[in-house]
C-alpha cells in the first residue's frame, strides 16, 4: 500500500506540467495545499486552546495524583488516588455539594421566573419608557460584584443597616448560619436578574408575532396566548437559562462569598468552588484541590449532558 502511493506520485507531476490535473491523481503536495488552509486557519485557535485549556486540564489531573503543598523547594510526592479517597472521605465535600444545590435552586427564581415576568410585562410598556425600564432592570449587572457587595454589607449591617430597620429585626444576616446563604442568593440574584431579563427579551423578540395575531383572531385571550403560544416558543431560551444557572451559579456567587462571608459563618456559605479555592490557595494543598477540580469538572460534564438532552426533549422549536 505504502509503496503503491509512491509509485503513483510520478505521473501526476508530469500531468501538472501538461496543465491537466485530474482530481483523483494530484500530487501529495498539491493535495496538502488544497486541504491545508482550513487547518492552518484553525491552528492558532487550537494551539491556544491546548495551551490555555487542555494542557492545564491535563496538569490538574496529574497534580491530583500527587501530594504537594505548592512550595517549589519541596518535591511532589506521588500518592495515587489517595487525594480522591481523602476528598470523598471529608464530610465537608457532601455539605458543600448540598449547599451548591441550594444555591442553584435559590437562583432559579431570579434567573427564570422573575425575568420572564419582567420581560412579559415590559413588553406591554410602549415607546421610550420600555427602554428605560429595561435599562433600570439591567443596571445591577453593570455594578462590579465587589462594589455591590460593599453596599449590601452596609444595608445588612446588624446595628445600623437599612434592612434591619425596615423589617424591624435584629438579625446579623451575613453572620448567622441560617440567613447567610439566603443573603448570598438574594444578592447574586439581584446582580444577574437583569442579564436574564435581557436574554428573555431577546427570546421574545425572536418569536414571530403572527402566531399571537392568528390566535387572537380565533378569539384567544391574552393569557391564553401567553400560556399556549409564547411560553412554549420561549422554551429553548428558558432551557438555556436553566442550564446557565445550574452550571454557573456557584461561580456567580464566588466574588460575593469571598468579600462578604469568606465561606462562613462556620462554613455555611462554602460551596464547591469556594471549598476548592480554600484547599488550593488557603491551605496550599494542591493535590486535594486538583482532585476536587477534576471531580467537579467530571460532575458538571455529566450534569450539562443530562440537561442538554432534557432541554432538547422538552423544548418547543419554531421550525
Amino acid at each position: 500500500m505504502v509503496s503503491g502511493t509512491f509509485v503513483e506520485v510520478a505521473p501526476p507531476l508530469r500531468a501538472r506540467e501538461a496543465g491537466v490535473v485530474p482530481a483523483s491523481r494530484e500530487s501529495w503536495w498539491t493535495r496538502a495545499r488544497r486541504i491545508a488552509p482550513p487547518y492552518l486557519y484553525l491552528t492558532p485557535a487550537v494551539v491556544l486552546l491546548v495551551v490555555w485549556t487542555y494542557q492545564p486540564l491535563a496538569q490538574t489531573f496529574v497534580l491530583s495524583l500527587h501530594s504537594w503543598n505548592l512550595v517549589p523547594g519541596t518535591p511532589m510526592e506521588e500518592v495515587g488516588i489517595a487525594n480522591y479517597e481523602r476528598l470523598l472521605g471529608t464530610p465537608e465535600l457532601g455539605r458543600s455539594v448540598w449547599r451548591t444545590v441550594v444555591v442553584i435552586l435559590g437562583m432559579l427564581p431570579f434567573t427564570v421566573v422573575i425575568p420572564v415576568l419582567v420581560a412579559l410585562l415590559t413588553r406591554r410598556v410602549r415607546g421610550r419608557a420600555q427602554g428605560v425600564y429595561r435599562a433600570l432592570v439591567f443596571a445591577p449587572m453593570l455594578v462590579a460584584p465587589v462594589a455591590g457587595a460593599a453596599v449590601w454589607q452596609w444595608l445588612l449591617d446588624p446595628s445600623a443597616g437599612a434592612v434591619n430597620r425596615v423589617l424591624g429585626t435584629d438579625v446579623n444576616w451575613l453572620n448567622t448560619t441560617g440567613t447567610a446563604q439566603l443573603s448570598i442568593i438574594v444578592i447574586t440574584g439581584w446582580h444577574v436578574a437583569g442579564f436574564a431579563v435581557l436574554v428573555v427579551t431577546a427570546g421574545l423578540t425572536g418569536i414571530n408575532p403572527d402566531y399571537a395575531a392568528a390566535a387572537q383572531v380565533d378569539g384567544a385571550s391574552r393569557s391564553q396566548v401567553t400560556r399556549w403560544i409564547t411560553l412554549p416558543l420561549l422554551s429553548p431560551t428558558l432551557a438555556f437559562l436553566v442550564l446557565m444557572t445550574v452550571l454557573l451559579s456557584a461561580q456567580w456567587t464566588f466574588p460575593l462569598i469571598d468579600t462578604l462571608t469568606q465561606g462562613g459563618p462556620v462554613g455555611s456559605t462554602t460551596n464547591i468552588y469556594y471549598l476548592l479555592w480554600e484547599y488550593g490557595f488557603r491551605h496550599h494543598d494542591a493535590g486535594l484541590a486538583a482532585a476536587a477540580g477534576v471531580l467537579f469538572f467530571a460532575g458538571f460534564i455529566v450534569v450539562a449532558a443530562l440537561l442538554t438532552r432534557l432541554a432538547e426533549r422538552l423544548s418547543h422549536h419554531d421550525d
Binding site: Q59, V62, W68, P72, G73, T74, P75, M76
Partner: peptide, 14 residues
C-alpha cells in the same frame, strides 16, 4: 500532554 505536563510543577530535589 500528561507526560509533558508532569515537569514544570514542583521540583524533585530538596
Amino acid at each position: 500532554m500528561l507526560t509533558g505536563s508532569a515537569c514544570g510543577l514542583g521540583s524533585t530535589g530538596t
